[in-house]
Amino acid sequence: MPVTPPRPKDLPLTALRAFEAAARLGSFALAAAELGVTAGAITAHVKALEATLGAALFQRTPRGVRLTPLGQTVLPAFTDAFDALGQAVQSLRSAAAPRTVHIATLPAIAQLWLSPRLPALRAAAPDIQISITALESPPNLKRTPYDLSLFYGPEPDGAISHDIIFPVCAPAIAARLSGPADLARIPCLSDAVWSDDWALWLAAAGANITARGPVFSLYALAVEETVNGAGALIGHGDLISGHLARGTLVAPFPERLALPRYLRLWSERPLAAGSAARRTADWLRTLGMASATP
């Protein structure tokens, strides 16, 4: 008579994923944000995993959690495994929809840099469908379903251009400015993400003043308000080049400041020659470099 012993239960994949994210990021809250769940869910998954194992993976302290020796030992293998799983999933997505390219980018880049270039890309490659997701920070391309990532970053790899900043304003506002010191007499608009732009440029220009004005949570909105005559704004050359070309914005001063960061387009995996993602990346680099603001 055949004997079929009960099979030991596998460890839940969701719990293992929760452990790996929390361990890699050093925070249950950050793990929850990455996985799109609550911090309570991460805690519950980790506790259930520890109960099943009969061993602790984290030490709980008044200052938070830290990995136990067991957790430290197994983390690298799980990180490699989930990275490989993410890459396999993305390869499957790409093979299933080979003409669709998913791009993750900053909201300001999506609106002011990427969107104006899409008509030329569609005309050149009508068979390619572009999907854009606006995010506040670069995604982990090993784990998320994006083919390309377009963000500012300090690494020159994949750089389309240097991030160069300088004040811009509507022509009517520029007529009232004879030098950087005159900026103290008008509103100086700011973006919440790039809140230090004014201080950096003013210091480089040798202007001993403080820029004051409204702060916007969206850079694209600050640009539109600047076009409408609300004041001056620190322009990022790549993002306001269209307005400069049309004359809706002007640069009242010659001083430029190159920041230690670049507009970067990159992928986590090699892009096959002739693939939709490779063609899209090549087109965007060509279009971007051709219109980069010096």
Score class of each variant (00 low, 15 high):
P2S: 13
P2W: 11
P6H: 12
D10N: 14
P12N: 06
L13N: 03
T14E: 14
E20P: 04
R24Q: 13
L25H: 13
G26N: 09
S27A: 02
F28W: 11
F28E: 10
A32G: 04
L35Y: 06
I42E: 00
I42A: 02
V46C: 14
E50V: 06
A51N: 12
L57A: 07
R60Q: 09
G64N: 05
G64K: 03
R66G: 10
R66H: 13
T73K: 15
L75P: 00
A77W: 00
F78W: 15
T79G: 11
T79Q: 14
T79V: 15
D80G: 10
A81Q: 11
F82W: 11
Q87G: 10
A88F: 05
V89P: 00
S91P: 07
S94M: 14
A97Q: 15
P98G: 03
T100W: 01
V101T: 07
H102P: 00
I103A: 01
I103N: 04
T105C: 05
Q111L: 01
Q111H: 15
W113S: 00
W113Y: 13
W113Q: 01
W113L: 00
S115K: 14
P116R: 04
R117C: 02
A123N: 09
A124N: 03
A125I: 01
S131M: 14
L135T: 03
E136K: 06
S137L: 13
R143T: 05
R143G: 00
R143P: 00
T144R: 08
Y146V: 14
D147A: 11
L148F: 07
F151C: 06
F151K: 02
Y152D: 13
Y152S: 15
P156Y: 09
P156H: 01
V168E: 07
V168S: 02
C169T: 13
A170V: 10
P171K: 05
A172V: 09
A172S: 15
R176E: 15
L177V: 07
L177F: 10
L177D: 14
L177P: 01
P180Q: 07
D182C: 02
L183D: 03
A184M: 03
D191M: 05
V193Y: 14
W198F: 08
A199K: 08
L200D: 12
L202N: 04
L202V: 13
I209R: 00
R212Y: 07
V215T: 12
V215G: 01
L218H: 11
V223F: 06
V223I: 09
E224C: 09
E224I: 10
N228Q: 15
G231A: 00
I234W: 08
H236L: 00
D238E: 14
G247Y: 06
L249D: 01
A251V: 12
P252C: 10
F253Y: 09
L263V: 10
L265F: 07
L271V: 04
A273C: 05
R279Y: 10
R279L: 15
T280S: 03
T280M: 05
A281D: 08
W283N: 05
T286V: 06
G288H: 03
A290M: 07
P294K: 01
